[in-house]
Design a binder for these strands. Structure first.
Lengths: 203, 203
DNA sequence: AGTTGGCAGTGACATTTGTCAGCACTTGGC
DNA sequence: GCCAAGTGCTGACAAATGTCACTGCCAACT
């Protein structure tokens, strides 16, 4: 029987190598490539068929979700397995609506990854139950502009600098931030940024 | 020749499993255990000799550095290899003064890990050159109190709440934060927290 | 005894941030 | 054409934050 061709996308070199070693232990898997960014993944997939893409969600440049979107569009047959970190949950809902096949925590038992890959290849959906809860919990209340303002605020920019970046007036920026603070039940912009980040709403 | 007995400490299950798979590929290594926390690591080491401890620096509860300190004291023969993330550099200096043997980025090529372990076991010191630069660069300018105040500010607490936590007056807290902001060349407390975190000075 | 330095606090002040109400303009639906 | 919704702006105000100069205390040093 033909083995499953896997592509691993993960920016941290060490973790990538380790994942590769782990998956190559499985007799029915063949790791056809391992890359450090979304761009490299797309380039490699253009040259060679891949059955399952195993991707981290956070990578420099285009995120794992942007990659997933591209792949879904250009190679609809390729299955998508996304791996994420404990405290960056909350991407699940967006991942789901985008047609990701499996979604796991990096904190899951390692056998579970191989299992998830096989199930995804068989056309099933695998969501870590812990993440499932988050997905059902609440949806992102922020508008795109509120998010952008909050993101800049989280980086330490003040209202004037944010306004300059977004080509808005200071007053408007403060209105956006005020909205975000109230929507998130936070006490100030720092708190709001922390909450949003923790829920995966800051990107 | 006797293989090197390794213990892996890393809280993310998947990454831990993957690292284990990677290191078990080496003929001269034997992974005698893999644990998810500093406590478990100490417990296991009490029962069984370990030549090299490979540890993540950030784990729930006691950090990798606290673990390293314990190990250094109780099993001085055990070599210490610390692995860390790209944007949590700056621990290097503290790690160095604590006698850690090797310090790597998770973002390093994976062969480098095996290599670093062998060198560490041979009594050599291995510091990722990229991290070396950081270590030489600058030392932490924050006092303990400034750090504590900044840490709480980074979590979204306001001045009054921080003052209550630290049993200080609001005025003093603002003085500390003001000092921290100026020392770090930041524009406000958010900015200061971001800078300090990035340099590894917020703990 | 006097000096120095660090720590905690105070008071005053300017600036920034958070909140709110309301205005003007565009867009799409009816 | 009219209405409603969304977007960006303004002004005003209260609250929080950032800055600075100065005081009192204590411990260490000479």
């Amino acid at each position: 029987m033909k083995p499953l061709d896997l592509l691993i996308a993960e920016d941290q070199h060490l973790v990538r190598g380790a994942l590769k070693a782990l998956l190559e232990l499985e007799a029915d898997f063949r790791v056809v490539g391992d890359v450090a960014s979304a761009e490299e993944a797309l380039a490699l997939m253009a040259q060679q068929p891949v059955d399952v893409l195993v991707s981290d969600i956070e990578m420099p440049g285009a995120s794992g979700l942007a990659l997933a979107e591209q792949v879904r569009r250009r190679w609809p047959a390729c299955r998508l397995v996304i791996v994420t970190t404990f405290n960056r949950r909350g991407y699940v809902r967006r991942a789901m609506t985008m047609g990701v096949d499996a979604f796991l925590l990096k904190d899951a038992p390692s056998e579970q990854l191989a299992d998830a890959i096989r199930r995804a290849a068989a056309g099933k959906r695998v969501i870590d139950p812990e993440l499932m809860l988050d997905a059902l919990a609440e949806s992102d209340p922020l508008t795109a502009k509120e998010r952008r303002a909050l993101l800049l605020a989280a980086e330490g920019l003040n209202t004037a600098q944010i306004a300059a970046q977004l080509c808005l007036s200071e007053g408007t920026v403060r209105n956006y931030l005020s909205e975000a603070i109230s929507k998130l039940g936070a006490h100030n912009r720092i708190d709001a940024a922390r909450i949003a980040r923790q829920k995966g709403w800051l990107y």
